[in-house]
């Protein structure tokens, strides 16, 4: 655990999930009923289930608070290294919308191998290109998907 790592507890996560529940609960009431009366409308199941979401997130939150008081809370440590990789992944996904698929993917794989220091530069280049080329030929040729 380095000094720069972030910490996030179970309490925070549960509050976030609680809010997700509330969001869908409120949204349920804006669903169009169409030609059907309320008891057979599309609101019933989402409203009911998001109420369950709120309930179970609240329950889980209460337990998390109890656990924190007792000193046994799950505290997750986010090391910059992993967070950085996730950020790089998101950049990759974003890049897919603008850069050709094969190019973005090869660069991402190359980056990954170097980032995790798993292969030397030359090997990393060969493996990245090979993986992308092999899988793209497989998907494209065999399954008629033209990239």
């Amino acid at each position: 655990m380095s000094a720069t790592s972030y910490k996030s507890g179970n309490v925070g996560a549960n509050i976030a999930f609680l809010l997700v529940g509330v969001f869908f609960f409120v949204s349920s009431f804006f669903i169009d009923r169409g030609i059907y009366p309320i008891w057979s409308s599309g609101m019933i199941v989402p409203a009911l289930l998001s109420a369950v979401m709120i309930g179970s997130a609240a329950h889980s939150l209460a337990q998390a608070i109890k656990a924190r008081r007792a000193g046994g809370a799950i505290e997750r440590t986010f090391e910059p290294r992993v967070m950085g990789y996730i950020a790089a992944f998101l950049v990759y996904i974003g890049a897919l919308f603008v850069v050709p698929f094969w190019l973005a993917s090869s660069i991402f794989l190359l980056f990954s191998f170097l980032y995790w220091k798993s292969l030397s530069l030359v090997n990393a280049i060969v493996v990245s290109v090979a993986v992308v080329a092999l899988s793209m030929t497989l998907f494209a040729k065999v399954f008629y998907i033209v990239f």
């Binding site: 050709p100 060969v126 290109v129 090979a130 080329a133 092999l134 030929t137 494209a140 990239f147």
Partner: peptide, 19 residues
């Protein structure tokens, strides 16, 4: 395991499609 030589033609064909 991976032979770069056999991959090049595949890459070219993909590049051709991409272009």
């Amino acid at each position: 395991m991976y032979k770069p030589i056999s991959i090049l033609p595949a890459l070219f064909s993909i590049a051709a499609i991409m272009a």
